[in-house]
Design a protein around this nucleic acid. Structure first.
Lengths: 211, 211, 211, 211
DNA sequence: CATGAATGAGTCTTCATTCAT
DNA sequence: GATGAATGAAGACTCATTCAT
């Protein structure tokens, strides 16, 4: 049982270190829902259980909070990939299957969808954010893809072709699924599993010929 | 008496018919650049060569203008497709090539890119707009794709598979290209031609097996 | 039957002389309903069956229209009274009865109520209007009242008293009735007839003692 | 480095408790002077020594401020009356004298005149306000009057008559005086004392017959 | 004369940001 | 550190007024 220490009913104050993170979480939710411009700091504060002014103790401006929030979310989702690719023994197709499977797992997660929503809708307006994501995530993914293709070519599994030169096309469907759900999700949502199956089917058909 | 100094303002133009369209064009540009919330009607007006107040003679509110602008842009890009599919004599692969080629032609156009930019970034926040585009465009495209697959199955060119059940995956790459350019275009733009080649290559590899 | 001359359906254009008056009538209605500041010239025009701009052909400004409208309404309701008083043969009480009866008849008329509504609500803000009404109407009424009292004193029907020195109090009830209906009419309207009876009763009790 | 010039604005006061009331007082003055529609929140703010935006911390809109201001002013001017009537031992005439005297005392007060001015001029446009005043003030007054008449009838001091059935007429003169001063006060003000004397004289003449 | 498009000066309202407590 | 009152700079929207047709 709790000691009857604080009769006012306020929830025990959280350890201060958590504050900025709570604000960021609240901000992420609001930014995803309304977009940067339409998000009110007051609502962010309310969601974080504090008052507007307090946000400024941790972030210099709305924009700073926005960027901090978006940066915070960048997981190391793909950190492990380069190594995996390097050490992988199986076929190119299997490697791609692995990668694509990971993508669906990673991206169709509530938190990541939130981030995706924001980047999709605000990315163009915030070059700094776009660059960050490009550097830390998307670009990495691209590199991995390229390395997979090079490996495939080197191993004789693939022949040089427009596709092997532009392998990004191979993950088009995931991107489409995310964006689709962001925009038309309310009307006609895409079921990730089903889409993943079709995607894998496509990969197999396209690359698995000589299996 | 006053000297015949410059009469206060510019001459009042009178374009009756053209005005609403001019405003819409200006609005589209501003909305694409800044997003709905951050767009200032004053800027739209300036771009249209008129004054803020004048917008209200034609549109009841900023939101009305936004929706009018987005509606106005919905071309009949895909109108002809159903017929084409119905009358087509060639292979499924060729039909898909045709469709995908059209998509690249249509979507990578300055005006359409503008619209795409807006829908991508604001679609989630304006259900009415999303629905409009779903009904008049995206849904149509989806239907055409499905019909193509059915036709392919009927003709014995395809076998039932996850991909034939979810053929949207086939156009994932175009969607990815558009979105990519919207967000990362400044950092590392996708060259549509190159991407189209990869996309066609992918289709051919995946569906042109028995060549 | 009408000749099929004007197929467009516009009502025959009124003789131009009527225009200003139609505008004034429309203005009166709007001003009474919304007050000067909240009245939109566009609504006045619509009610008069013309367009906003046309008002300016007849009136220099909204305020001019307002004053013109209020001036136009000043009937000669009391024009005849001085003479009547001068020629009257009966008792002071009867004379007052006559006057008060007239007041109720005159004031509880749709058009006059309209005017009253406007004067009550805007009189303080438009000194010119207040002065006009004071000069042409209210002041006249006051004079008549005074003359009636003088006559009564002279005829020995009244003795000098606070009331004979301030006879305006005698018509307080009518004023109250009008104002009451203007403000509380929707909640609990005063029925003029009933109020008139009470008013006459009051006069009789107060002045008809020794009859 | 900048010289220690005057720090941009005035020091931010912090009156927490007092603020809303200060705003209301300022609002009352402006509304009385210009009417609701023509009052600028900026002027209200200036008069209250704050900035426009601050008003919105306490009131949701101009209209809310208006209603709050009018509500705030409703004193309990007549609270005590019912009891007084119940306990009174003297004659009906004396009771009426007492009531009317009170009315003059209460109504001809700077603050009340302000309120009266507003209610007279805006009451018709704000049903909510009219109802409030009807419920809390005017209706109460009416009830008191009726009770006085009933009491008079019961005590045999009065006989049933149109006036006893509609005793509101008895206070017509006060209402007239207020309204008159509101509208014609600048041209020809009524002196309350003088009017009160006439009013009392009228009451006495009308009801004090049987000595 | 009438029209209605266009203007431009407001006015309300919102909100990021600051600051005294 | 946190609070919340206060600020001030916008920005949407309105409307009296003007003017080309």
């Amino acid at each position: 049982m709790e000691p009857a220490s604080e009769p006012t009913g306020k929830p025990r104050r959280r350890r201060k270190e958590a504050r900025p993170h709570e604000i960021i979480v609240a901000g992420l939710a609001e930014f995803a829902e309304r977009g940067f411009a339409a998000t009110r700091l007051e609502d962010v504060a309310a969601r974080a259980g504090i008052v507007k002014g307090t946000i400024y103790r941790y972030f210099d401006s709305k924009e700073m909070l926005f960027e901090a929030a978006l940066s915070s979310g960048i997981g190391s989702a793909f950190e492990a990939l380069p190594e995996i690719v390097a050490d992988y023994e199986g076929s190119t197709l299997d490697l791609l299957r692995l990668l694509v499977g990971r993508l669906y797992e990673t991206l169709f997660t509530p938190e990541v969808e939130l981030l995706a929503r924001i980047i999709i809708s605000e990315g163009q307006r915030f070059p700094a954010v776009a660059e960050l994501y490009y550097r830390l995530l998307v670009g990495k993914g691209r590199d991995v893809l390229r390395r997979i293709m090079e490996r495939g070519l080197a191993r004789g599994e693939l022949l040089p072709s427009p596709l092997s030169a532009t392998p990004e096309a191979l993950i088009g469907p995931v991107v489409m699924a995310i964006v689709w759900n962001t925009i038309f999700g309310r009307l006609d949502p895409i079921e990730p599993k089903r889409f993943l199956d079709a995607h894998l089917d496509l990969l197999e058909k396209a690359l698995g010929h000589n299996g």
